[in-house]
């Protein structure tokens, strides 16, 4: 009797197994069979579209074997005593022009050469730069932000002023013409539309005007808000840490005031080209000028229209 029960149970059981074995899987059931591709640790890409925001750098470097050709232009004051209709809102003047080439030696290491007019008395600038991507943010936040290092050396080729020893260009030899910049660029992409930078910076000028600072620390902040797939609002701001008595002395002697550079602009990306249309109170384009030498104020109408055009060529094959 007992064996009979067991037998019949086995029969039912095996029949059930057979049935399930033969039944087709629905799409939903089938999908469960497919191992979900692990979310994995991916590097966050395209935190910014360009290696620069307006005045400051972003954490982005070029990919290996890419050449970036970039032209930056800053016009004269739009308003204020040096602007207005007489100066065609600054378009009659250009405070600084820069032509630069950058090349990606590896995906993480970019070198650059540039020529800039220079905005103050320190003119005819040649810049050599190096930018190294140390850390990349990851999608799983194992690395919550990116870290890129930037360093540059700018040499002023302007004729030395031998008559006035207090002049910023009273150079005595080649060493005086050199200016160094070191930056640690921290960046985070909060969403596909929103990215920020925080840039502790150090500027060392081998030679400056009398009582101007050779060494200066500054902190930069920047952001990008993408409002369409190809257009974004970009902003950056630098806060230099200046010695108070030196500042007061210089402001009195030169009858100018120091301001902190603030830029706002529109970024347009067309697939290879990146255009920036921007407004900033900074007259210089090089870090060694706009950080320590911005003497024009937004509030006095001393902001200018500027643009940059960047074209990336890839020689990867």
């Amino acid at each position: 009797m007992k064996t009979k029960i067991i037998k019949s149970r086995l029969l039912v059981f095996s029949a059930l197994l057979l049935l399930t074995g033969q039944a087709a899987f629905s799409q939903e059931e089938l999908e469960k069979e497919l191992a979900v591709p692990a979310a994995g640790r991916e590097k966050v890409s395209a935190t910014f579209k360009s290696t620069k925001l307006i005045n400051g750098h972003t954490n982005e470097t070029l990919f290996k074997n890419e050449l970036d050709f970039k032209v930056d232009h800053r016009f004269g004051d739009i308003a204020g005593s040096n602007g207005g209709i007489r100066k065609f809102f600054g378009l009659d003047n250009s405070t600084d022009v820069r032509i630069g080439f950058e090349y990606g030696l590896t995906d993480n290491l970019t070198i650059g050469l540039a020529r800039a007019k220079g905005a103050t008395a320190v003119q005819q600038l040649y810049e050599g730069s190096i930018k190294y991507r140390l850390l990349q943010q990851t999608t799983d936040n194992h690395i919550p932000f990116a870290v890129t290092l930037f360093g540059s050396n700018t040499i002023a080729a302007v004729t030395a002023n031998k008559d006035d020893a207090s002049s910023p260009i009273a150079y005595n030899g080649f060493k005086d013409r050199q200016n160094w910049v070191a930056q640690i660029i921290l960046a985070r992409k909060f969403s596909s539309n929103l990215s920020f930078t925080l840039t502790p910076s150090y500027v060392h000028r081998n030679f400056t005007a009398f009582r101007d600072q050779n060494d200066m620390f500054a902190i930069g902040v920047g952001g990008r808000f993408k409002f369409t797939r190809r257009m974004a609002l970009v902003v950056d701001y630098f806060l230099p840490f200046r010695d108070k008595s030196d500042k007061a002395y210089l402001e009195q002697v030169t009858a100018t005031k120091f301001y902190n550079p603030l830029g706002v602009g529109l970024e347009m990306e067309t697939g290879g080209h990146v255009f920036h249309l921007n407004f900033t109170n900074a007259t210089g384009i090089q870090e060694m000028q706009f950080i320590p030498q911005t003497t024009s104020s937004w509030l006095k109408g001393q902001y200018r229209w500027g643009f940059s055009i960047s074209r990336r060529f890839s020689f990867a094959h």
Binding site: A46, F63, E66, S192, S314, A316
Partner: peptide, 13 residues
């Protein structure tokens, strides 16, 4: 992609 900028554009844009 051979050109990584294309890869970036592919995903981004």
């Amino acid at each position: 992609f051979k050109k990584k900028l294309m890869q970036e554009h592919f995903n981004e844009n």
